[in-house]
Every structure is written in C-alpha cells, then in structure tokens.
Design a protein around this nucleic acid. Sequence first.
DNA 1: TACTAGTTGAAAATGATGTTCAGTTAGAGG
DNA 2: CCTCTAACTGAACATCATTTTCAACTAGTA
Lengths: 143, 143
Amino acid sequence: MINLERLEQQLKARGCKLTRQRRAVLRVVATTEGRLDAARVCEDARAECPEIGLTTVYRTLDILADIGALRRLHLPDGCSSYAPASPGHRHHLICVECGRAVEFEGCDLTALVDSVASRTGFEVEDHWLQLLGRCPACQARRL
Amino acid sequence: MINLERLEQQLKARGCKLTRQRRAVLRVVATTEGRLDAARVCEDARAECPEIGLTTVYRTLDILADIGALRRLHLPDGCSSYAPASPGHRHHLICVECGRAVEFEGCDLTALVDSVASRTGFEVEDHWLQLLGRCPACQARRL
DNA sequence: TACTAGTTGAAAATGATGTTCAGTTAGAGG
DNA sequence: CCTCTAACTGAACATCATTTTCAACTAGTA
Ligand SMILES: [Mn+2]
Ligand SMILES: [Mn+2]
Ligand SMILES: [Zn+2]
Ligand SMILES: [Zn+2]
C-alpha cells in the first residue's frame, strides 16, 4: 500500500501540478493491492473524477513509473500492467490466479551473476526477476 | 545455435506440414544468434522464400515458442522479440547494446524462493529471470 | 493420382498506445 | 484575491504491431 501524500510530494518535486485527474489516479494507485492497467485505473478513477480520459491516465502512469512508484509487470498474458512499487531494489511475486502482486526484497544473485559473467564474458549490469505463484486466498479457494 | 533437423522433426511430430515458408523461417531461426522479431525474420526469410508474408511468420514464431524452441524476451524497449532456446530450464543474458542473447543454466533460486514463500504464504510455481549487460564485443568497442 | 486437412497471404479488423491541438487550470507572484 | 502562464487536459485522430478472415493453395498420405 503506497502512501498517497508521499506520491503527491514526489509529483510536486518534479514540477507537476496536482490536478483533480491526477489526484484521482493517485488515489487508485495508492489504494489498490495488485495489478493495475490503464483501462482499469481509468474506470476506477472516474468514481472520483468522472471526466478523466484514458489519455491522462496513460500520461500519469508514465510519470509514476518514471519516479519509481510503479513497476511494469511482464506476465504470460501481457506486458502492459503495473504494480505499486516501493523505493529501492525490489521484485514482484504475482498470483497467476487473481493478479495480486506483492513485493519482496533480498534477492541475492551475486553468486549466480558472477558465475554467468565469468562463463560468458558479459558485464552484467542489471537483472530482472519475477516470481509467479498462487496467493494464500487463491490457495484456500481451490480446496 | 539451434539444430535445424531437430526443429523439423518437432514440427512434424506436432502434425505440422513442412512448407517452403516454414523451412525458410526455421533456417533463419536456426542460424541467428541473438534477438529475433517477426519483421526481421520475415525480411531474412524472404532471401529463401520471397513470397512469404508477415502473417505466416507470426504463426510460425508462435509455434516455435509453443514447442520451446524460442523464448520471448522482455526488454526495456519492448516485449516482442524472441531468442533461440534450448530444451530445459534456462534463462537469457542479453546485451543491451547489440541485442545478442545467450542462454545460461544453473539458476539456483531455491533458497530465495523458499524464503519468499514462507514470508508471504504464496505457493511459488515459476520464476522469470533475465540478466542484462554488455557482451564482450560491445565492451571492446567501447574503449 | 486423388484427396483433404492443414497452410497461405492479402486485406481488413483490432486494440493498445501515442500525438495533436485548441481550450482549461493549478498555483506562483503580485 | 487578481493575473498570468506553463502545465495540463480530452476528443479526435494517427500509429503500429498483431490477429482475424477467407478463398485459394499444397504437403503428405493413401
Ligand atoms: Mn534483484
Ligand atoms: Mn531459473
Ligand atoms: Zn490470488
Ligand atoms: Zn553486444
């Protein structure tokens, strides 16, 4: 769960104005636990700001991804959704059934990265990791 | 480098016919080292089969991904390219400069996965990992 | 050789995302 | 409070990769 005020501050610090549309998007992002995509955000944001357009949603999600408040998810069924992201190096664990996305930290890949680097001669700069599984609620529902 | 005959066998085993178009695509896939995308494959395949259309390329790449001969890559600049893939559980290391993609195996994430699973209650089923870096050739060119 | 399920490509449809632009507004400064 | 302006907005339109359609074609089997 993201802190709404922190988001507003970050936007201001970036020279962005806080419009009604943006506030609506921020509220959706700050109160959603799980995957977000432009269409869904637009729909939800209209509860608070009925005249918001998809264009603005796209623009706002872009900004939020830029400042690191959202991270793009890459899933078997598409690569156009986001998950709320905390500052710092994190990865996501995603429920393949309901789409819930939770962050985790503490990925120690140094041994793996070193081994691959020395075997291939590559200079490894970054890694991208996602875990897929089933959340507790969806496990329970399965029984 | 993928074995062309093996690919042809796999397609046959699947009940696919070996058309001139498909042979052309297979040859491109089997002889390319690095990223592939539909447009590029189509262009290259036309050297052997000038009348091939993009539609067929898309269809053939789909099949190849299905049988595991190609793996979809997810990169900062898009998620619509593939890399040749060997059978078994592998991941890719991709050069952010020239797009060369090499496979590696031996990802031991069990400790990480167990830790995350017990912390979150998720049942982890799968993981996606990609390393990004600079290949030896691109490192040299940088000096 | 004859048959047919599978295949093909041009054309049209789709669908997500980006761009344009004329009008609107947040919010800094007076 | 006003004023001013850079930032913002949404409808309409443009893009562009990918999918669908469909009538014609063909690999491979009998
Ligand atoms: Mn990490
Ligand atoms: Mn692995
Ligand atoms: Zn779930
Ligand atoms: Zn390179």
